[in-house]
């Protein structure tokens, strides 16, 4: 992970508190705007997707990682470089499926959930669902269709927070005839 310094926002860091609280304000607002948790989950995923689509550009420009050759490499880049760069944490990678097309990210101290306690009436809310959207959106831009979901969440009393990632297929470039 080599970086060249001195370009714009390159390595600018900030206190996570403003980020955490702003995210909380967003989730609270969505809970007011939508009737049920399912819709909030969907909206968070959608917003995450929009973020991911833009984030990947920023990431590729800054990180100097080339094309990943397989899903294992992708997992490494996500956990060790991308999460570190954007959220300041390094999730561990576990539970590979035998076919190598599925793995889990285990998040300790997820900065999105600091100071958060889910009220009882939001038991189906997936508070950090934005992250799933971000991962899906970012990977789609590098031609990987991936299924991302939370399977465990400390906010719901599980002992760890686990995001399950499943590779679906490679997205072929379908350029219309005459382009390029």
């Amino acid at each position: 992970m080599s970086r060249q310094g001195g370009r714009g926002t390159e390595s600018k860091k900030m206190n996570s508190e403003l980020f955490t609280l702003t995210y909380g304000a967003l989730v609270t607002q969505l809970c007011k705007d939508y009737e049920n948790d399912e819709d909030v989950n969907k909206q968070l995923d959608k917003m995450g997707y929009n973020i991911g689509v833009r984030l990947i550009e920023d990431f590729l420009a800054r990180s100097n990682v080339g094309r990943c050759h397989d899903f294992r490499e992708t997992a490494d880049v996500i956990a060790k470089i991308a999460f570190k760069m954007y959220l300041g944490i390094t999730p561990s990678i576990t539970n590979w499926s035998p076919g190598g097309d599925e793995f889990s990210l285990i998040l300790e101290n997820n900065p999105l959930v600091d100071f958060v306690e889910l009220p009882d009436n939001h038991s189906t809310l997936i508070y950090s669902n934005l992250l799933c959207g971000v991962l899906r959106g970012a990977l789609e831009m590098v031609q990987m269709a991936v299924d991302v979901k939370f399977v465990q969440d400390t906010l719901k009393g599980d002992s760890v927070t686990e995001i399950r990632m499943k590779f679906i297929r490679r997205i072929e470039d379908n350029l219309p005839a005459g382009e390029e």
Binding site: M14, S16, D58, Y86, L87
Partner: peptide, 11 residues
Amino acid sequence: ELSLAAFALLF
């Protein structure tokens, strides 16, 4: 600590 870009994108 986290990246300013993360906040910028969220905001």
